[in-house]
Amino acid sequence: MQASEAEWTEIEKKIARTAFEQAYRREIEALLQQVQQEASTLVELNDLWRLHDFLSAKRHEVEGKYDYQYSILLFVFAGLVKEGWLHLNELEGLDKDKLSKVAVLSRM
C-alpha cells in the first residue's frame, strides 16, 4: 500500500503539498487560538506549568503527525481526514486508487 515518490506525478505532488500545508495551517491556527484562550485564564504558577506540559505534548504530536514522505503520505492524509484537518475533496486530482485508500483508511 505504500506509494514511493516515483509513483506520484508532478501534478499529484503539487496537490498533495497544497493539501498538506492547508491541513497544517488549520491545525496550527486552532492550536494558537486554544493557547491564547488558555493563556488568558492563567492565575497561578501551576496553570502555567500545565500549559507548558500541554504545549510540549502537542509539539511532539504535531511534529510526528506532519511527516511529508511519499511512502507514508496516504496514511498521513487518512489521519488528517479522520481528525477533520483535511477534507477528501482537497485531494481531488490524485489517482483514484490513492483517493480510495485515503478514504478507506480514514474510516478505520
Rank of each mutant, 00 (worst) to 15 (best):
E83T: 09
T9H: 06
D97W: 07
Y66E: 11
E44N: 06
L31P: 10
E38M: 14
Q36Y: 12
V62R: 04
L94P: 02
A6S: 09
V104I: 12
G93H: 09
D53P: 06
G64L: 00
V81T: 01
I28Y: 12
Q22Y: 08
D97T: 09
W8E: 05
Y24C: 08
Q37F: 13
E44Q: 11
E92W: 01
Q2K: 15
V76N: 04
K98C: 00
L48D: 02
L48C: 07
L48E: 04
H87Y: 11
I15K: 02
R25L: 10
W49V: 15
W85I: 05
Y24I: 02
F20D: 05
T41W: 02
E61D: 13
A78I: 02
E92K: 07
D95F: 01
G64N: 15
L88V: 12
V102F: 08
A3Q: 03
D67L: 11
Q33N: 14
R26G: 00
I11E: 15
E29V: 12
T9A: 03
I28P: 07
G64V: 05
H60S: 12
A19F: 08
V62A: 01
S100Q: 11
F54E: 08
Q69N: 14
K65L: 11
E29Y: 12
W8Y: 15
A3H: 09
L80T: 02
S4K: 13
A39L: 12
Q69L: 08
R50V: 11
E61N: 09
W8R: 05
Q37G: 07
L105V: 03
V76C: 07
W49K: 14
T18Y: 09
A16Q: 05
A39D: 00
K13Y: 00
G64K: 10
E38H: 09
Q37R: 14
G84D: 05
W85R: 06
A57G: 08
L42A: 06
Q2R: 15
L94D: 01
Y66P: 11
K98A: 03
K65D: 03
E44W: 07
E61Y: 12
V102C: 08
W8I: 05
S40Y: 03
R107N: 04
L88K: 13
A103R: 10
S100P: 00
